[in-house]
Design a protein around this nucleic acid. Structure first.
Ligand SMILES: [Mn+2]
Ligand SMILES: [Mn+2]
Ligand SMILES: [Zn+2]
Ligand SMILES: [Zn+2]
Lengths: 157, 157
DNA sequence: AATGTTGATGAAAATCATTTTCATTAACAG
DNA sequence: CTGTTAATGAAAATGATTTTCATCAACATT
């Protein structure tokens, strides 16, 4: 049984092993970083955060691990329009909870919101059910993003 | 008054001029291509489609024009996970009507759906109003995408 | 219609995030 | 402890997108 207190196997070890992946120091460090993160990190962000404690972990491994995590649906991969992919732990994994994003088209600032999230989720559930039946499409996750101009950018005009 | 029958100035000329942009053959060709398109085109797709009729239009111009169109909110820019940006005319511009997407994580196939779109739009309207007030964020557009496994990929397993 | 200003353009070079290659290391099953 | 094979880092490659810069052309003005 996975612990939550830092001792024993992490919650994700089982899923990792189950998919035939090995547990390595680099992968632990990357997951730890994602769990602590309070922002949407790029591969390089993660590499930089890890580098002091684990100088042996290269950027390549960060990319490779993130790809695995996305495939396993443990991590979301976002394109917020700033030229690099951004990663975020899927909710439920740790502190992250279900939310959606406001994206500023001007400065790429991201606002996370949970307002109306219950109404949204209710509708999404219904929609998912209908769509997966009609198109025989197995829905795993969704993205909702609003694009526009943030408060600060509006003032600058 | 812009015509819709192919004679006279196109519907977008006014907006273009108003922003200080000039009307050029390349830009006409790119807009035409987007209006005819039935798929989500990449910059190179557009370049290839145009190239026979307008050999003078280069890939660089396609990129530059698309950037303008996205900034002007005439075109959506999507990242469907296949390594290149995809573009689609904003609804109302021509034949395109409001819809959302199902994205297959396995083969990157895209399914457009309009089912439940009315319920979605209704909720989105309410959400937009609340969010724009709470965060003082001017909402211009939104993206809703469901990720999962498409019918064909499910059968392959 | 001719002219001048300045935005638009293409070709080639540069960028730069991400991927691939390949020799070496290390996880972990037995 | 040992063998098998996935994982890794460093360096090179890739490839979409951007930048540079000399030249062209849209269009406001005359
Ligand atoms: Mn987030
Ligand atoms: Mn579409
Ligand atoms: Zn902003
Ligand atoms: Zn598929």
């Amino acid at each position: 049984m996975p612990r939550r207190d830092g001792t024993g196997p992490m919650w994700w070890h089982g899923r990792f092993r189950g998919c035939g992946y090995r547990i390595t120091a680099g992968r632990e460090a990357i997951l730890d970083t994602l769990m602590i993160a309070d922002k949407h990190l790029s591969a390089e962000d993660i590499y930089n955060k890890i580098h002091n404690a684990y100088p042996a972990v290269g950027l390549t491994t960060v990319y490779r691990t993130l790809e695995i995590l996305v495939t396993m649906n443990l991590v979301f991969k976002f394109d917020f329009g700033d030229g690099r992919a951004r990663y975020e732990l899927v909710e439920g994994s740790k502190k992250s909870h279900h939310h959606h994003h406001l994206v500023c088209k001007e400065c790429n600032r991201i606002i996370e919101y949970t307002d109306f999230i219950n109404d949204e989720i209710e509708l999404l559930k219904k929609t998912e059910k209908g769509l997966s039946k009609k198109y025989n499409f197995e829905i795993i996750s969704h993205i909702i993003q609003f694009y526009g101009i943030c408060e600060k950018c509006k003032k600058k005009r």
